[in-house]
């Protein structure tokens, strides 16, 4: 070391909103770099959804009738919004694992010892996961179009659907952040992810019409599940069959699915962003 070690430290930003964005972006870039360094991660993260689309479309497609829709591609059109939401819900596990890994390797300690905003590391992680999701969504959508899924209701509603979907994915990511900061190991983060996300996505209208769920209380759970609201909103906005054709009355949250989905996502963000920032401040390895 030379004597210039004595030089005064470089002044750092005051912590205003622009500073937070800058810090979050630096961390986002770092996380994205990780994806390019581990291309196998990106390949597998897109193979899995493709596999889901194909398996469900061709294995269950013949067995699950969708009320009010006929033809070979009826179930596929019904299925795709469900697969989208399910796949993107799993972003929560991605975020959990990523943060648990950083925590375990001491990177969170390094970040916490730097004079950066407390939310920057979390925002950087969720943003990187969100961008990866965008890529996965494109892959899935192309795959869906190939097997016969269509958007039938115009550009504006199509965009509104994708917005709702990506907002929901972002909200799930923040739940994952809290989980990731609460568990001790990467393995636990991964396992826990499966334990809560699988029931969350399956106890819904994502893969089968919710009216076929039994007993009745399961239908009630499915009706109020944020996953169902989001899936229903997408089917509605994109003009895909929703399985409620011929039903006397739609459950309330399904009838108002677009607003209910929006409400759920905003509520999740409003609860889990402050919660995860609080966890981050006091987290210890």
């Amino acid at each position: 070391m030379s004597s210039d070690t004595l030089a005064p430290p470089v002044p750092v930003g005051s912590g205003g909103p622009l500073t937070v964005l800058h810090d979050a972006w630096v961390v986002t870039l770092r996380n994205l770099r990780r994806m390019t360094r581990m291309p196998e991660m990106v390949v597998f993260s897109s193979i899995q959804p493709i596999m889901f689309v194909l398996l469900f479309a061709f294995v269950f497609g013949g067995a699950i009738p969708v009320p009010g829709a006929e033809g070979k591609t009826a179930y596929r059109e019904f299925l795709l919004p469900g697969i989208f939401v399910q796949t993107l819900a799993f972003t929560a596990a991605t975020t959990s694992v990523g943060l648990a890994d950083d925590l375990h390797k001491g990177l969170i300690d390094r970040f916490r010892s730097l004079p950066i905003s407390r939310s920057a590391v979390l925002a950087g992680r969720t943003t990187a996961d969100w961008l990866q999701n965008l890529f996965v969504l494109v892959v899935m959508a192309v795959c869906g179009l190939i097997v016969g899924w269509r958007i039938n209701d115009g550009v504006l509603k199509a965009v509104a659907g994708f917005f709702l979907l990506m907002l929901f994915a972002y909200a799930m990511s923040w739940i994952g952040a809290v989980v990731g900061l609460s568990v001790r190991t990467v393995e636990t983060a991964n396992t826990i992810g499966f334990i809560w996300i699988f029931p969350l996505t399956f106890l819904s209208n994502a893969f089968v019409p919710a009216r076929t769920l039994s007993p009745q209380w399961l239908q009630n759970v499915a009706d109020w599940n944020p996953v169902s609201a989001t899936v229903q909103a997408l089917r509605h906005l994109w003009g895909n069959p929703d399985g409620y054709a011929g039903a006397a009355k739609m459950p309330w949250p399904i009838e108002h699915a677009t607003w209910v989905s929006l409400f759920w996502s905003v509520l999740i963000l409003a609860v889990f962003i402050p919660l995860s920032v609080r966890k981050y401040r006091s987290v210890s390895t």
């Binding site: 430290p9 750092v12 770092r30 770099r33 990780r34 360094r37 581990m38 390797k105 001491g106 990177l107 300690d109 390094r110 010892s113 730097l114 004079p115």
Partner: peptide
């Protein structure tokens, strides 16, 4: 305080993918 300190931990906290 964070502006004035450097910390190097027991577990080498570098991002191994970078």
């Amino acid at each position: 305080v964070r502006r004035l300190i450097g910390l190097s931990g027991q577990y080498a906290a570098v991002d191994e993918n970078l």
